[in-house]
Every structure is written in structure tokens, then in C-alpha cells.
């Protein structure tokens, strides 16, 4: 039995799944990620904040689309802790 957790937007901004438009996504759904590994970015005007899980986990799904506006507290990613 596993329980899902969410990673929420810490601030309003724009959610990015890639470090740069021409680069691949940080992670795909189903990927194993480590605590502190970057899974996305929140861009606010010209500054960027890393989005990272607090524990080792599997990315279940992305709830926010790449390059879309998000509010503080919106769910960005659901993960399953390992």
C-alpha cells in the first residue's frame, strides 16, 4: 500500500518542466527521483526557483502543464514516496 503526495507551488509564477526550451524535460512521469533533485522550475518575472521533492520518490503525474501560470499552493506534481 502506497500513499501519494503532492509538490505544490511555493509561489505564484510560471511552471517549467525544462531547464531551457531546447532541452529535454527534467523528469518524465514514472521516473525515480531523489530528494532534492529538480523536477521543474517556477519562473517569476526573470527569477527562477527549483521545484524538488523532499524525499526519494516516483513521479506519478504532472498536474501543471509546461509554461502555464500557477498560483501559490497549486499542485504541480504528484509523487509516490519510496
Amino acid at each position: 500500500m502506497t500513499s501519494e503526495e503532492t509538490i505544490d507551488a511555493p509561489m505564484p509564477g510560471v511552471f517549467y518542466r525544462r531547464p531551457d526550451p531546447d532541452e529535454p524535460v527534467f523528469v518524465e512521469e514514472g521516473d525515480d527521483v531523489s530528494a532534492g533533485e529538480t523536477v521543474g522550475l517556477i519562473g517569476v518575472m526573470k527569477t527562477f526557483h527549483d521545484i524538488e521533492p523532499g524525499t526519494d520518490c516516483v513521479v506519478t503525474s504532472f498536474e501543471a502543464d509546461n509554461e502555464t501560470e500557477v498560483e501559490a499552493g497549486d499542485t504541480l506534481v504528484t509523487v509516490e514516496p519510496e
Partner: peptide, 13 residues
């Protein structure tokens, strides 16, 4: 739209 109290971090709204 920046917070001088928080190192001028930009804040939309």
C-alpha cells in the same frame, strides 16, 4: 511588483 523586504523578489498578482 517586487518586495524590497525580501531582496526585491518579484511577485505577480
Amino acid at each position: 511588483a517586487e518586495d524590497p523586504e525580501d531582496d526585491f523578489s518579484p511577485m505577480p498578482g
